[in-house]
């Protein structure tokens, strides 16, 4: 897995970073991911029952917030002011990218699973950043930022690995858990692809319906005029209140 992944990362980074405009988008995506991760870590601070871990989760959360700002700073420096602001401020982007959902990761996974997820995700990030730094991509300033962030990521890997090893020593199936998370990341990537593909196909068919089904009704439809009009109300009886229309 490690060799294949490294080879893939090397090839992908050579391509991805060199497409004009792509570095901005990738860095904005990193900023967004870090912002989502901060929310997960703060949720862990709130919810953990292991009080000795709170300080680490809290530091981790602050690191992620700082990383989001650093990545956004690079996006801004590369000319993507609007994209940088959106990555730091637009909540809709976090939802659309599937980074946050109805529950935080900690709420969904519980402590041990969460820690093994953190370890897998952080170790992957370290590997990814090391490839970029080795290839000196995409530019020296961004590499300097990546190097700063990498130091923090190494701490995150270190403490989460310690916790994972501790749980494994206590007889928990952590190797299985980590393998599950690795495959879940691949699976989620696939799901994202199929969902996007499905949305495009759906859009295509809805576009066809628009041209064939909607078009004829245009003859009868008018926009409402401006100004005050008498209201059409359904009333306040229990029956009316039960209706969705």
């Amino acid at each position: 897995m490690g060799l294949v992944r490294r080879a893939w990362l090397t090839v992908a980074s050579e391509v991805a970073w060199r497409i004009p405009g792509r570095p901005q988008r990738l860095l904005a995506a990193f900023a967004l991911a870090e912002r989502g991760s901060m929310l997960d870590m703060l949720s862990a601070v709130e919810h953990t029952e292991r009080r000795e871990l709170r300080r680490r989760y809290f530091r981790h959360a602050l690191d992620e917030a700082r990383h989001a700002t650093l990545f956004a700073g690079r996006v801004r420096a590369l000319g993507g002011v609007g994209r940088a602001e959106a990555a730091l401020e637009d909540s809709g982007q976090l939802v659309d990218a599937g980074i946050v959902g109805g529950q935080t990761l900690f709420e969904r996974l519980g402590e041990e699973e969460f820690l093994s997820f953190v370890y897998v995700a952080e170790a992957d990030a370290v590997e990814q950043f090391e490839v970029y730094l080795r290839r000196r991509l995409p530019d020296p300033e961004t590499c300097a930022t990546l190097a700063r962030i990498l130091k923090d990521e190494l701490f995150h890997v270190s403490y989460s690995r310690t916790e994972v090893e501790r749980a494994a020593a206590a007889g928990r199936p952590m190797a299985l858990s980590m393998a599950k998370h690795r495959w879940r990341r691949v699976w989620q990537g696939w799901l994202r692809f199929t969902r996007d593909f499905g949305a495009r196909m759906g859009g295509l068919w809805l576009g066809v319906a628009y041209l064939t089904v909607v078009a004829p009704f245009r003859l009868f439809a008018r926009l409402e005029p401006g100004g005050w009009q008498l209201p059409e109300r359904g009333g306040s009886t229990l029956d009316a209140a039960r209706r969705e229309s």
């Binding site: 628009y210 909607v214 078009a215 009704f217 245009r218 009868f220 439809a221 926009l223």
Partner: peptide
């Protein structure tokens, strides 16, 4: 209704 009224 709006989609119809503002076609195309």
């Amino acid at each position: 209704s709006t989609a119809v009224a503002t076609f195309p």
